[in-house]
């Protein structure tokens, strides 16, 4: 394999605790992972497992208390604000909640142009790019002159994706980007993610609690449990024949949309519990 674009080694992330001289709480206890060019690394785990925190650490929104994150071979775990700003071209984000991730008082065009103008694009170039982006994510061009509240959840998520891709980044952190969407919208947005990846060669770190979503989009999967990476490998292996007991539990807990297969799975789960 070629050199990964992102490599985390023994990554530890902590959150500060309010109050004088209080020790920060460590959420992520030393995880290692790599993401290659154009690759999707799925991160699956339950609430409180630290999956969102890892994403925020890569984005510089959470404090890295130990280990390293190398992007294109350069350690960015303690990047200064100036370096961070230059990284905006390369690392972007799509959040879970398409409602609070778009400023309600700005028009879509302004929202999409912001990352461009910050990087010094001219107004004309930015406008051109915004229209291009709207086309690309399947929204009408007149969306630019409208406010976020005029769009449905799925459409808003398309806008958030367009914003993330505006600067043609090398890596996008996707933090549960389809969890808040309806079933029929979810599949379409996932397909959009995959299409865009094939076209642009962007890499994804795709965070989700839903194994079906992870299987659909990931080349490789890491399973996070209480701040530790308990299993990591090719999607088919990790989600098909999990070795770690927690991963096994996770796979068996996800209900299948088929009454007979679900009954089987439930029986298997009961067996596993009886054995434990």
């Amino acid at each position: 394999m070629t050199a990964p674009i992102l490599a985390a080694k023994n990554l530890q992330v902590s959150y500060p605790v309010r109050g004088f001289m209080k020790k920060p709480i460590e959420i992520v206890h030393g995880v290692d992972f790599e993401i290659g060019e154009g690759e999707t690394l799925g991160i699956v785990g339950e609430s409180g497992s630290g999956k969102t925190t890892i994403g925020r650490a890569i984005l510089g929104l959470a404090m890295v208390s130990g280990g390293s994150i190398a992007f294109d071979g350069r350690d960015i775990s303690q990047a200064t604000p100036k370096i961070r700003r230059s990284l905006a071209k390369d690392i972007q984000v799509v959040f879970q909640d398409p409602y609070s991730s778009l400023n309600p008082s700005l028009m879509i065009g302004q929202i999409l142009a912001e990352p461009l103008t910050v990087q010094g694009w001219s107004r004309a170039d930015a406008t051109k790019r915004v229209l291009e982006l709207l086309d690309r994510v399947g929204l009408p061009r007149n969306a630019a002159a409208r406010l976020p509240r005029e769009f449905s959840g799925g459409q808003r998520q398309r806008i958030a994706i367009a914003r993330a891709l505006a600067l043609s980044p090398k890596l996008v952190i996707c933090d549960e980007p389809v969890s808040g969407l309806d079933l029929s919208t979810q599949a379409k947005v996932l397909d959009l993610f995959i299409e865009l990846q094939r076209e642009t060669g962007v890499a994804y770190m795709f965070i989700s609690h839903d194994l079906a979503v992870i299987r659909h989009i990931s080349h490789r999967v890491g399973v996070l449990y209480r701040g530790e990476m308990v299993e990591q490998g090719d999607t088919a292996e990790v989600t098909g024949e999990p070795r770690n007991p927690y991963t096994q539990r996770l796979v068996l807990a996800a209900p299948v949309a088929d009454p007979d297969r679900q009954a089987e799975r439930r029986a298997l789960r009961a067996q596993m519990f009886a054995a434990a």
Binding site: M1, T2, P4, G36, E37, G38, E39, T40, L183, S184, Q186, A187, L190, I194, R198, G201, A203, A212, V213, R215, H216, I217, S218, H219, T235, A236, T239, G240, V256, A257
Partner: peptide, 24 residues
Amino acid sequence: KMLLDSILDEDTIRQDPPRSVIKV
């Protein structure tokens, strides 16, 4: 029918390789 079709099938796992692998 549309809803049932939208369910992400358990058996579909992403097959196409990432760009890094294609490059190699």
